[in-house]
Simulated assay, not measured.
Amino acid sequence: MTTTRTAPRRRSRPRAPTTEWGHELYCYGHLIQAAVARARTAGHDQLADVAIRDAAVLRGHAVRAVYLASGAVDVAVETGDDELLDAVARQWRNTVARRTYLTGGFGSRHQDEAFGDDFVLPPDRAYSETCAGSAR
């Protein structure tokens, strides 16, 4: 339960007007704090680098995967990291060739709003996340 539902009403409008995103933002905050704490204590963290560089295709939640790829391209361009840029370009080519509908839709799985396996693009239940298209 959120405080907008359990706290006595003292205001005319709810404290958090978009409660459907409240939990997501709450979780993001924890992840950001954890990342900052890790960077402060451990220095540069190569775990994310390895996960991005070694992947053959974009995977997982379609929107988040495309945003992650976009961010990785920004980092690669800003730092002159051609190896990272090549890795993301390879993943993009493979994803477009294997996991994208002819209409350009991303994400064949309703569950998790995610990319499916290579060449598994069911026409009758295509999720085709429109937000992922915006991330391009």
Rank of each mutant, 00 (worst) to 15 (best):
R5H: 10
T6I: 15
R11L: 12
R13K: 14
P14N: 10
P14H: 06
R15G: 03
A16L: 05
A16N: 09
T18A: 09
T18G: 02
T19E: 13
G22D: 06
L25K: 03
Y28S: 08
H30G: 15
L31R: 11
I32M: 08
V36P: 00
V36H: 05
A37L: 07
A39Y: 05
T41P: 00
G43S: 07
D45K: 04
Q46R: 15
Q46I: 01
A48T: 14
D49E: 13
D49M: 03
A55G: 00
A56L: 14
A56C: 03
A56G: 06
R59E: 14
G60Y: 06
G60C: 10
H61C: 07
V63L: 11
A65N: 08
A65D: 08
V66D: 01
A69P: 03
S70Y: 13
V73A: 01
V75I: 14
T79I: 07
T79V: 03
T79G: 03
G80N: 03
D81R: 07
L85N: 09
L85V: 02
V88L: 09
V88M: 06
R98V: 01
R98Y: 01
L102A: 13
G104T: 07
R109L: 13
Q111I: 06
Q111S: 03
D112G: 00
D118P: 10
V120I: 12
L121S: 09
P122S: 02
P123I: 09
P123D: 12
A126M: 12
Y127Q: 02
E129V: 11
C131A: 14
R136G: 01
